[in-house]
């Protein structure tokens, strides 16, 4: 399955938006955290997990989804949220802890929930899988269209929740697709030292569903495999497990000294940065530089507007902390 030109450009644009967004977040995050790095300080306190380098998986999958479809995501959710169409301004405002944020500042960067586009995420590893099954089940029971996609990291594929959810999906033939972003690290632990198999796609066999491995952090290849899987789910033919190779260009979280990385790994990953690679590919396929420049400019202004919106928004009254526990 190959993307149309329009789909290719959509993927490119969302990758660029995601990258620019994270660059802006990174800059804002570091404000107030120098010279001594203290996570508690600055306009964006707390942990920050950047997803730069991992954009291809999010766009290759979400290119096949519409707002009605469900995505459950991870502790590293920005690229997935952007590709799913979460409102960028409200997402930025949430990360800045403002009243205009998705939850008014209650949730923060690991807890982005946007019912308008059926997006949610959790900071607990592996916990994207079960809710995706439930959403898929709900659509089946209600006889409503829509598929669910659960994103997770390769480290999460060792969590009980992942295996239980896959069995559920396989047994009930649910319209769900599990997408593992294999960035080869779970914080400081390499995949190979924590996983009994080399590639997680083989685990699909244990749960009666097809499994695919997509090498190369290549948005087109991911688009292809995810397209088949999502079409299959839409036709009621059941779940699929996909593991896609990807690159974590940043540390696990901001402030991570990354001493566990082998020498030269980061340079090698940056040399394979998927965004310039995709630009080259699009140019080779006949897109014009002007066309792509325009996309990049649009991304820049979208991100700039979102960050401005976030900065200029007010904080909610502190006592709002006590509301919204129940609806």
């Amino acid at each position: 399955m190959q993307p149309t030109k329009e789909q290719s450009l959509w993927m490119y644009e969302n990758m660029v938006v995601s990258r620019r967004f994270e660059e802006a977040i990174e800059k804002a995050y570091l404000e107030g955290k120098t010279p001594a790095f203290n996570m508690a300080n600055g306009p964006i306190p707390g942990e920050m997990h950047l997803s730069n380098g991992q954009e291809p998986v999010a766009v290759g999958v979400c290119a096949h989804l519409n707002a009605d479809d469900i995505v459950t995501a991870t502790h590293r959710p920005h690229h997935q949220a952007i590709a799913k169409g979460v409102d960028l301004k409200r997402m930025a405002a949430e990360i800045f802890g403002k009243s205009t944020g998705l939850s008014g500042g209650r949730g923060g960067h690991m807890h982005l929930i946007d019912p308008a586009v059926n997006f949610s995420c959790s900071g607990i590893i592996g916990e994207s899988c079960g809710p995706a099954c439930g959403a898929a089940l709900s659509r089946t029971i209600q006889n409503k269209p829509g598929v669910a996609v659960a994103f997770l990291g390769e480290g999460a594929a060792n969590q009980g929740a992942f295996h239980e959810a896959l069995n559920l999906a396989g047994t009930w033939k649910l319209p769900v697709v599990f997408v593992i972003e294999d960035n080869s690290w779970g914080i400081s632990v390499p995949k190979a030292e924590a996983t009994a198999v080399i590639r997680n796609d083989v685990r699909a066999a244990g749960y009666g569903m097809p499994g695919h491995y997509v090498p190369g952090n290549d948005p087109h290849a991911i688009f292809d495999v995810a397209g088949e899987a999502i079409a299959r789910a839409r036709k009621g033919e059941g779940p699929t497990l996909i593991e896609a190779e990807t690159y974590r260009l940043a540390g696990h979280f901001m402030g991570d000294a990354e001493q566990y990385r082998p020498k030269g790994e980061k340079d090698a990953l940056f040399a394979k940065d998927p965004i310039p690679k995709m630009r080259e590919r699009l140019l080779a396929e006949g897109c014009t530089a002007t066309e792509l420049d325009e996309i990049e400019q649009r991304a820049d202004s979208l991100v700039a507007d979102a960050i401005t919106f976030a900065r200029e928004s007010d904080y909610a009254p502190e006592s709002d902390a006590l509301t919204a526990v129940f609806v």
Binding site: K98, G105, H111, E318, A321, L322
Partner: peptide, 16 residues
């Protein structure tokens, strides 16, 4: 700590 999930925003968390 009041009986609410711990809020992210700094001013809200410090309030609690």
């Amino acid at each position: 700590f009041p009986d609410v999930p711990i809020p992210y925003a700094k001013h809200m968390e410090q309030f609690c």
